[in-house]
Design a protein around this nucleic acid. Structure first.
Lengths: 330, 330
DNA sequence: TTGAAAGCGCTAACAC
DNA sequence: GTGTTAGCGCTTTCAA
């Protein structure tokens, strides 16, 4: 490995001059600089980021913690985060928790050893102490997708409004018995989506059919099974609002398997607009979220906090989502 | 930030004793060790990986370079890589190239500054010099999914055999005009899949219908459009072998939109078995690949190379895939 | 404008 | 068993 010393020797200058030639902020005579740069190229010298980080007290890396990389919303987010980070000279360390809090703690403990200058969490849940602790340890933190009260900077979508609009749309199209398939209500995003759903029904004078409301995870086709159960009972909805596309897709599968049709018998609306949603049959009506953009905004905010560490008040960034109407609703 | 010095002072020992107590390899008296550990916990001390890495000449990080995180095969791989790496005390730095070689070079240049102890590339293509250069620079490299002659360690699936089997299956079910929708033939995996396809046809005495063979990328619905073109011509296949599921899904969409049915009019076989494939309509018959496992094997091999840097001959690991028969074939 | 030297936090060779 | 110390590669004072 080529070090700054070798460059210095070969160019006939001191290591400080090499450093200065490369950093650019401090003045070095034109000739010297040229000679140094030439030597750097000849030798293929690359500054060692470890040494630089150790000296400067920062790493130019950020930790991105996500709950489940196989949920297609995260790849989109990851891409936004990574592109933006790289554009700003940061590298991304991606960690997947599988929604498991022990994994998450272990990951944090690892990254806190100066691996990263700051964290982006897309995993906020009700069990939140460990993330608070990071902040106490002076690591900048931005929450993404899922947020938590007003303690942290965050980037989220307008979950309430978007759900409201989606359900309102179903009502306008004449649906009256609208089921909701939701996620963990301890997560603010699902709670907000639920609130939007309820408000839309209420505003239209419809009852909230509690027997048509359930939550499910992504494991073991839970969503498929619970939807099947619902349809086998004698309370059949005329529309289903699923709070994400994966749930919508499982629900559609269940509806078809039981011999009913989408959208003729039951309309289905999803949430997320993952890539696959425009290819399944019927193409899914869903709320489209700007995931790439969200990742981008989260990184930009995080870098701001890293660079000017003043104790600003946390900022909540809300990005707009929009209803995309396709063929799964009639 | 708590440093080893503070721990040492508080515990009344030298820094080396703290270091030794933590590393565990060198003997420290029970009492001292206990006292040190206690202090470490009280102070919340975490060894600085930058300093450690600088000292030891390694980082315990590996770079994982993938072409496109939005292709669902990669999240599965990433998860395998990440889990295994973490289990072995390594951290993963994930980088996405968007199939762009300049991005890739930039990423490599960044990671070579001692960020990582080795690389896993899932991006090998015909333009390969920059990856060779990494190896010359003494960085361990393992190729994944896509490989390249015998220069490198690699982990791949039995593309030829799997394709052969898939096409053979179509033939056995009575199909005679079998189209192939392929990817870039400069990538060995697609070439191998093409060879498997041809061999299966040949072995059954069928002609290779060159007018029914085309390649397409994932951009701009290219696959959808080209399939539509094919179907609008008067040479209509009775089966389509798509060399990945995303292509198969686009093809199915095209078939349906033109008013034909899958599998009644045209059978479709995919390759990959991404999660969504068992939820689309009809559920996709496809070749299932053990992506998680592949990531796992790649990491294990890489770590082996990192730890015993002897110049072994590169090893090619071939993992078995298998045909999963669902409803898109008749 | 440039060089010498200290020091970032850690480990390990060497001394006791 | 434990302490002292050099040094990993870099940046940045301080001097010249």
């Amino acid at each position: 490995m080529v070090t700054i010393k070798e460059v210095a020797r070969k160019a006939g200058v001191s290591t400080s001059t090499v450093s200065r030639s490369l950093s650019g902020n401090i003045f070095v005579s034109k000739d010297t600089k040229k000679r140094v740069i030439k030597t750097v190229n000849e030798l293929g010298y690359r500054p060692n980021v470890l040494a630089k980080g150790l000296k400067e007290g920062k790493t130019n890396a950020i930790g991105l913690i996500i709950p489940n990389i196989r949920n297609p919303i995260y790849p989109a987010i990851v891409k936004g985060v990574e592109d933006t980070a790289r554009k700003n000279g940061f590298i991304v360390i991606l960690c997947n928790t599988d929604e498991n809090i022990d994994n998450e703690k272990e990951i944090i403990s690892m990254l806190e050893k100066r691996w990263v200058d700051g964290f982006i969490f897309a995993t906020a849940s009700s069990d939140f102490n460990h993330i608070c602790k990071i902040k106490e340890n002076k690591f900048p933190v931005v929450l993404l997708v899922r947020d938590w009260e007003d303690e942290f900077d965050s980037v989220v979508t307008d979950n309430f409004e978007a759900s409201y609009e989606a359900v309102k749309y179903l009502i306008q199209r004449g649906h009256k018995k609208i089921a909701i398939i939701n996620g963990d209500l301890n997560l603010s995003l699902y709670k907000e989506r639920y609130e939007g759903y309820k408000k839309a029904l209420l505003d239209s004078g419809l009852e909230i059919p509690s027997e048509m409301s359930f939550c499910c995870s992504f494991e073991n086709q839970e969503c498929y099974l619970k939807t099947t159960d619902l349809l086998k009972s004698n309370i059949i909805p005329d529309a289903i609002f699923a709070t994400n596309d994966l749930r919508a897709i499982e629900a559609i599968r269940a509806i078809k398997d039981i011999g009913l049709k989408v959208p003729e018998d039951i309309s289905v609306v999803g949430f997320d607009d993952i890539q696959i949603s425009s290819f399944i049959d019927p193409m899914l009506t869903t709320v489209s979220q700007p995931f790439y953009k969200m990742g981008e905004v989260a990184v930009k905010n995080l870098i701001k906090i890293i660079n000017y560490k003043r104790n600003r008040k946390p900022k909540r960034d809300v990005v707009k989502s929009k209803l995309v109407i396709r063929n799964s609703t009639r």
